[in-house]
């Protein structure tokens, strides 16, 4: 994946809003930061304040997608208020900590909470088992996580912000899944015209 400047392709940029979900301390921010700041030293990434992050992903040559993340870590307890973030999101990273059983058990709840809130729309999720580097303290097996993912109809990946393993892949996977859902109509942009699609899979005019 090479990123050598702001996207100027004819196709883009698609803009997807992505939300990070999961219990506190599962590592939402660290995963996000590892992705937006740590991995690509040469990457084009803007940090607008600390309030949201923007990152470009090139799904295939010429097809750049702009991901917009809102930092909501630490605000989990203001659940009713933070529900506002769910609307108009195209994707959700559903995180749990591989070494923390309870965080795994909360996944369904997070999933339901978001799907209930955004209906009749839908959001594309990716289930992420985080902190895979702590193999010795693992409390959640890959098999059962995969089973949960299958029952939610989402993909599963294990990541670590420590060794940066699978971090890029995770975001790539989610972005691709959103893109494909848009293509197949599973995720419908509310309106499409002249290549400018609004909100759900937001495609803004070149900026």
């Amino acid at each position: 994946m090479s990123l050598d400047g702001p996207p100027r392709g004819k196709m883009g940029p698609y803009q997807f809003r992505v939300i990070m979900l999961g219990d506190s301390t599962v590592g939402k921010s660290s995963l996000l930061r590892c992705y937006t700041e740590g991995v690509f030293l040469d990457a084009v990434n803007q940090t607008v304040g600390v309030d949201f992050y923007v990152q470009f992903v090139e799904l295939e040559p010429g097809l750049r997608v702009k991901l917009q993340f809102w930092d909501t870590a630490g605000q989990e307890r203001f659940r009713s208020v933070t529900r506002s973030y769910y609307r108009n999101s195209a994707g959700g990273m559903l995180l749990f900590d591989l070494t923390n059983r309870a965080s795994f058990e909360s996944v369904r709840q997070w999933h339901r909470e978001v799907t209930d809130t955004v209906q009749p729309f839908s959001i594309i999720f990716l289930l992420v088992g985080h902190k895979s580097d702590l193999a010795g303290q693992r409390r959640v097996g890959r098999k059962e996580a995969e089973k949960l993912a299958a029952s939610l109809g989402v993909q599963y990946i294990e990541t670590s912000a420590k060794d940066a393993s699978n971090v890029v892949q995770a975001f790539q996977m989610l972005t691709l899944a959103i893109y494909q859902a848009l293509q197949t109509g599973r995720l419908a942009p509310t309106e499409a015209w002249d290549g400018v699609k609004s909100t759900r899979g937001k495609l803004l005019p070149l900026g």
């Binding site: 809003r17 607008v48 702009k66 605000q75 933070t82 506002s84 973030y85 909100t199 005019p205």
Partner: peptide
């Protein structure tokens, strides 16, 4: 809305994004 954004030279976030900032602020 897009014209408004460009005229005001705002960063490339849609209006509904900007409207989230107060929600975020009070939690921050």
């Amino acid at each position: 809305f897009e014209a408004c954004r460009l005229l005001q030279k705002m960063i490339d976030i849609s209006l509904d994004g900007f409207l989230l900032t107060p929600v975020q602020k009070i939690c921050k």
